[in-house]
Structures are given as structure tokens and as C-alpha cells.
Amino acid sequence: MSLPAAAALLLLLTVPLATFALYSVLTAGLFSVSGPLTLENYRAALGSSLNHTLATNSLVVGVATALISLALGLPIAYWLRFAAGRWQQFVLFLVVASMFASYLVRIYAWRTILGDNGVINRALEGLGLTSQPLGFLIFSRAAVVIALVHILLPYVILVLFAGFRPMPVAILESAQDLGANSLTRWRRIILPLMAAPAVTAFLFVFVLSAGDYVTPQFLGGTRGSMLGVQVQASFIEAGNWPLGAATGFVMLTGFLLCYGLALFALRLTRLDRVRWS
């Protein structure tokens, strides 16, 4: 019964990814892409100093977005699981609903808030605190991070809430009865038990934000541009598909390495073995 779906995904995902990989070792001609096979695109992609800057930006934005989302998501998921009471379903609904507030609309919303004529700058001027717009609010890595946290935080909350769900209240109660204060409970019980879902959420956010190409286009400016924008531009603007494919594949390899390293680290520390039954 799973065959039709499996065939469809093999045809529409794995075969295209393989084609994408093939393009990265071909040469771009005027109207076509052809052989012989070459590593020239990878040399160009890895050697470009612009790409180094953009990759650094992607890395910084990805890590910052993931860390901030986790720092907010953990206490929120904890509250939902242990303290929300009758508010639980309502707040969960709000979180799910906000997940569906359009991706582009959020980017647009942050542009109207952070922009030179935006809500914040106008308010500051109105209050007489500034005489000209604070230009650094928009077109920076920080602006990109804010919008990405806004986009991805709901997913993080849901993943972490699912992680908290099977955790028995009794564990925390007994820790408390034995004299552990809330800081100790977080450090010695909650964080180790939540390591696996937290790493999952971190990777999810890191990969999606470091691989984004739209948010940096509208909020990053030149200072906050990222590698995904460059890959997109190689395809759409420059029309050099092989170079774009090679740059994209370097990115993809980086993400796969992150997945591998994280799984390895979890296994090494045996934090992936938490079972409740």
C-alpha cells in the first residue's frame, strides 16, 4: 500500500536530487549544460571569498536562530506541560495557529516594523527620542534572526512539548521533595531528559534558517546576505546552473554533517536512550 507514495517520492525527490548532483559536475554552456565531468564548479564555489562571507553569515544566523528558539521554546513547552492547566489547549491552539501565519507575511511584517519608515522608528521619532531613523534595525543579520525566530518558534514549541509530554510529574515532585530547587531540577533532570528532542529542534531550526534564501533577501541587505541567496541567484539571475548546484551541494553536505555529528554526540553521551516505560 505504501508503494505508490514510495514510487512518487523516489521519482520526485531522490531522482531530482541525483540530477542536481549531476549538474554540479557538468560545465555551463551558453544554452545548455554539458560534459565532460569536472570539479571546476566545486573549486569555484569553495574558492570564492564572497561565498566564505555568506557561509559565515548562514552559520551565524542558523546557530543564533536555533539557540534563541530553544531558549524560548523550552520554558514555554515546560509551562504548557506542567503549569498551564486549563489554558493548555487554548495556548496550544494559538501556537499552532501562529504556525500558519504566512511565511512571506511575517517577513513583510518585520520589514514594516524594522524599516526606516517602520513602526519602531516612527514611534521613537514621535516620542522625540531620535531625530532620524535607526538604520541598523533592518538589513542586518539581527533582523534576519528576529524574523526567522518568529517563523520557526511555533515548530520548536510543538516539538519540545511532545518531548515533555511523556515526562511524569512525579519525577520533578520527588526531586523537589528531596530538596532540589528549580535551577537544579532544570540542570539535573529536565535538560538531560530533554536532550534528544532539544537537539532535534535545534537541527530543524538550524537547517531551515541557515538554508533560507527569502528572509535574507528582504531583511538582510548586503550585510546580512546568506549562502542560499547566492545559490538562488546562480540559478535564476546568473543562469550558471552547475556553479549553483555545486554551491548548493556544499551546503547540503554541511547540513548532513551537522545531522550526523548531532546523532553521534547524542549516542556518545547516551542521551538518546531515555525510555519512559
Partner: peptide, 20 residues
């Protein structure tokens, strides 16, 4: 395989399909 598309940024899914 059924889970795979979630782990990939849309950029790669879009470009791979474009090339395909």
C-alpha cells in the same frame, strides 16, 4: 523516505525539481 522532505530546506527541493 517519507520523512526526508521535512529535513531538507525548500531551496534544495525547489532547485532539484527545477533541474529535474
Amino acid at each position: 523516505l517519507f520523512f526526508l522532505p521535512i529535513t531538507l530546506p525548500g531551496l534544495f527541493v525547489g532547485l532539484a525539481l527545477l533541474v529535474f
